[in-house]
């Protein structure tokens, strides 16, 4: 049901490079898990509203006033590569 090709596709959607030896067992694992969760298909849920969140809260706002936050320096301190006040990354466009 889940092929190695499917696993590689999902891995690429997940931005994970998989080593060859990982793809096969992961295909088996995912198939096993999907077979288990297939039991959800037995229920009739046509009339049921989804619950994405249990609290009766929505759109929590605060007053729009400027407050102290992390400085540029504090933020950049955590990265492995920075330049001129920015995060430095490998080339994005060829």
């Amino acid at each position: 049901m889940i092929s190695e090709k499917d696993v590689k596709y999902v891995a690429s959607l997940s931005r994970i490079h998989l080593n060859e030896e990982e793809a096969k067992p992961l295909a088996k694992d995912l198939e096993k898990i999907l077979n288990y969760v297939a039991k959800l298909q037995k229920l009739d849920v046509k009339q049921i509203a989804p619950t994405s969140h249990v609290l009766p809260l929505n759109n929590v706002f605060r007053e729009d006033i400027v407050r102290p936050s992390l400085t540029q320096e504090e933020t950049l301190n955590m990265t492995v590569d920075k330049m001129n006040g920015s995060f430095k990354v490998p080339k994005v466009i060829e």
């Binding site: 997940s14 994970i16 992961l26 995912l30 060829e94």
Partner: peptide, 24 residues
Amino acid sequence: NPIVDMYEETRNQGFGLEAKRRIM
């Protein structure tokens, strides 16, 4: 391409097997 390779290799090296399983 260089940046996607960085994302994918970082996540390949950084995440263990169960994390990969669950993310996928």
